[in-house]
């Protein structure tokens, strides 16, 4: 799980153009939206595409997004359970 979290942090940095950030700067348990990383709605769409592109996960239920994208750790847990690649 910790390895997946580190990989995911790096993928988020690249997908969202956090040019000044390293994986160490991201708290795996901090909120992704609002406080924490302060992501916006376009970033949310990028994260949905990241799940599809990198892990073969298509988020069919928009309501599930709120829980999946709570933090990097919750994303990693969801990926571990649902990945197809």
């Amino acid at each position: 799980m910790e390895e997946l979290i580190e990989q995911l942090k790096q993928q988020i940095i690249e997908a969202l153009n956090f040019e000044d950030m390293t994986p160490a700067d991201i708290d795996a348990n901090a909120p992704l939206f609002g406080e924490g990383l302060g992501l916006d709605s376009i970033d949310a769409l990028e994260l949905i595409m990241l799940l599809d592109r990198e892990y073969g996960i298509k988020l069919a239920d928009p309501k599930s997004g709120k829980e999946v994208f709570r933090s990097v750790r919750s994303m990693a847990e969801y990926i571990q359970k649902n990945r197809t690649k």
Partner: peptide, 9 residues
Amino acid sequence: YYPSPALFV
């Protein structure tokens, strides 16, 4: 086919 919303905008 992985359309990028961040590029689309």
